[in-house]
Each structure stands twice: as structure tokens, then as C-alpha cells.
Amino acid sequence: MSTHTARPTGRGRLPGIWSLALARASVELRSFTRERDAVVFVFLYPILMLALFATVFGSEQAGSAGTGVDFARYFLPGMIATGIMLSSFQTLALAIAVERDDGTLKRLRATPLPASAYFLGKVAQVLAVATVQTAVLIAIAALAYDVPLPSEAGAWLTFAWVFVLGTATGSVLGVAFSSAVRSGRSASAVVIPVVLVLQFTSGVFFPFYSLPAWLQTAASLFPLKWLAQGLRSVFLPPEMVSLEPSGSWQLGLTAGVLAVWLVAGLVVGIRTFRWRRHDDG
């Protein structure tokens, strides 16, 4: 059986994973930016919502007497969190479900492209979109709505790890959730309600402290609440911590919950990922 060394000569080496990942990232970014739906409902959506909230509630304060901030400032962390979730979870869950349905994945599987390069390309696309989106949100908040930005390095360090961990968790969960979608046509019907419910219950559209306790508890099971809370710790003044139901920013718990979802998403994603459609044998 030892005939495997008898490869035809003159075959060059297979390209490396990193150069392939880079090539995939460029393909992914081009596809994303040309999909008008994605640009509007993933990239622009949180930016428009921030502008809308800041304009509508421009003269009001979030919080209570003594510990209040402008609505624009209160909603900035929530909009960054929702942007991260849309750019990572929603984008990947939809894109991979559609690519599985329309045959992109099967086509790639027939080439020598390694699976790792495919996923690295996706991650790079998500990171690029989430980074630009977050930067635009922060810039608009600061320039148009005079939201003061944190000046201490510690706050930006917290921002960095919450952003990276949140994006990673959202991406992994998006890959895993794509397997729950049975066809490309049903993809948005399956994914978007999940996203919407989490947005309304996780302190993105309503101040988290104004939700009933049972809803707060329910939302605490899911990562978006923790992502938004971690970002509030960065962008809200320290005294606003008194409005958190626990009376603390709970950064350790935030890291823990996000990490648990990350690992769970990895396990489920690896076990359920398929290159072919459900009905394709």
C-alpha cells in the first residue's frame, strides 16, 4: 500500500494557511460591502440608532437625580455592544447558512483550501467590520453629541478585552447557530428574532435598570447583557455603577460568562458544522 510517495513530480508546495486566510478575508470583505442589506442592517444600523436616540432624547437624562448622564452617553455602550453582536453573530449565522445553502461551502470543500483559512477569513472580516463600526460610533458620539470619552488607560484596556472577547464569542456562536438554520431562505427569519429579543432585554434599547427583575435575570443568561455591561463600565462615569442591579460592574463575571459561551459555541460549532445542506444526503 506504500504508493503514496509516488506523487507526480513538478507539483509545487501548497500555499500557506496565512496567505490563504488573507485572500479569503479580502473575498469576504468585498462580498460583505457589496451586499447592501448587510451594510445597512449590520454596519449602519447601530450608528443610525445612536443618532436617533441621541436626537429624540437629546434633552433628557438617563439615570436618577444626582447620578444621571445624557442619553447619548448612556446608549453608546449599548450600541457598540449591539454592533458587535450584529457584526459577529448575526453576520456569520446568516452568511454561513446562506453559503451552505447556495453551495459556496461545498465548492470550497472541493478545493485544497483548508477549513482553518476559511474561518480565519471570516474572523478577519468580522473584526474589520466591528472595528470600523465601533470607531465610527465612538467618533460620532464624541464629535456630534459631546459624549466624554474615558481618559484612563485602564478603561481602554477593559474596552479592548471586552471588545475582543465579545467579538470572538459572537463569531463562534454565529458559526454554531448557522447549523440551526435549515435553508438560506429561512435564515433571517431564524436569526433576527434572536438578535431582537436580546437587544430589547440586554440594556441596548432600554436602560437595563428599568427592566423588571425577572427579565434582568433571564437576560443575564445570555452574552449580550454582559457585553453591554462591560462596555458601560468603560463609557459611563464611575458613580453610574449604582444603577447596576448588582451594584457592581462585575467585570470578572463578565469575562467568565463570555468565556463559557465562547467555549460552548466552539464545542457545538465544531460538532454541528456541515459543508453541505441538510437535504443533501
Binding site: G10, R11, G12, R13, L14, P15, S19, L20, A23, R24, S26, V27, R30, S31, R34, E35, E99, D102, G103, T104, K106, R107, A110, T111, P112, L113
Partner: peptide, 25 residues
């Protein structure tokens, strides 16, 4: 493969070039 309807937003040149990247020669 049999039917194909994927990669709609990319151009012919982009798809061929990107696919070529995966091969040694």
C-alpha cells in the same frame, strides 16, 4: 458541481483569482 448560484456579488476575475490562490501551480 451540479447547479451553482453562489458568490453572486463577486466578479468573474475576483472569483477565478481567489480560487487560484488555493493551488500550488
Amino acid at each position: 458541481l451540479q447547479d451553482s448560484r453562489d458568490l453572486g456579488e463577486l466578479t468573474v476575475g475576483e472569483v477565478v483569482r481567489a480560487t487560484a490562490r488555493s493551488y500550488p501551480e
